[in-house]
Design a binder for these strands. Structure first.
Lengths: 167, 167
DNA sequence: TATTGTTATACTCTATAACTATA
DNA sequence: TATAGTTATAGAGTATAACAATA
């Protein structure tokens, strides 16, 4: 049973086969890795990827982030950030603090307990990711990183164009 | 506002920074592209990515596919395939036909109308994907495809090991 | 008037497990 | 007993829109 009978790559068959095959392969890779990360987070830490991502953002910003900033960084709409934040506050992993000079907003930041809990998860997460890319040379990793950098920048450019056009 | 303040890449900061950054960049790329595809499918065709993927599989197999095969190829569990198939049957885009010699199973395949509808969507889908990678040289695309091929194969190997261990 | 954040709602996708019918 | 597929359920994740409070 060959690999190409098993997944989404079966989809490519047009004159722009190169781009299509690349996209489907990219999608398959990220789905395969993401699936293991989600399963691991659920089984070992009883949490989810969006919750992990939110905590990861806060860990990077000890001074805290406003809801709007979180929404932007996590690329989801505001209501969802409220929901996830409420959960984490309920578990004592995150807290809302006041913002001087703007009583509408507040900063969300990790509690000491949240910081500890995140460190533990991040360590395991790192192992999953290292495993996902093991067997590839540092040179391959670097090259892949650079090429994906071009792809990413192009998507951001497109989004900016679309965003500007919508205003 | 620089790109790295805007997305998940903010997460990488350990001694295995190379792998982590690569993973977060890979994830960001696929999320950005996938988001546009999902939005486009919804806005222009009132459909979803899983539905599109199911039809794409059927388009590749005019003789039809069994539910179990679809489940395997789409990497989701059986109950979900039933649900999506039911929707598409309800809209006359797909049909269930009998399988000789096994009255438990049947083949799912595109109706003529489903075939036409898919062709239209696939054309637009192709344009989104071509746009997503425009600006990259054929050589870059090829290299990216090869590198991701290694990544993909490694994930499949891991899954096989895990699957074998679970039996 | 615009912005920050919340609430309410609805829908899609997903996994799990119990179930039916057939092999 | 095992397999193909369905049903039922629950939860995650998301977007949208209406809303309150503040700027």
């Amino acid at each position: 049973m060959s690999a190409d009978t098993l997944d989404l790559e079966a989809r490519a068959h047009s004159e722009h086969a190169q781009e299509l095959r690349l996209w489907l392969r990219l999608l398959t890779c990220s789905q395969l890795i993401e699936k293991r990360v989600r399963t691991g987070l659920r089984e070992q830490f009883d949490t989810t990827l969006p919750r992990f991502d939110l905590m990861a953002q806060l860990e990077r910003h000890p001074e805290g982030l406003k809801m709007k900033e979180l929404s932007h960084r996590l690329m989801v709409t505001g209501g969802n950030v409220t929901g996830i934040t409420d959960q984490l506050v309920g578990e004592g992993l995150v807290e809302r603090t006041e913002v001087d000079g703007d009583r509408r907003a507040f900063r969300v930041r990790l509690t000491p307990r949240g910081h500890t809990a995140f460190a533990e998860m991040a360590l395991q997460h790192e192992q999953w990711i290292v495993q996902a890319f093991e067997g590839m040379s540092p040179r391959d990793l670097d090259q892949l990183h650079k090429l994906l950098g071009k792809v990413k920048q192009h998507q951001l450019d497109i989004n900016q164009r679309l965003g500007a056009a919508a205003e």
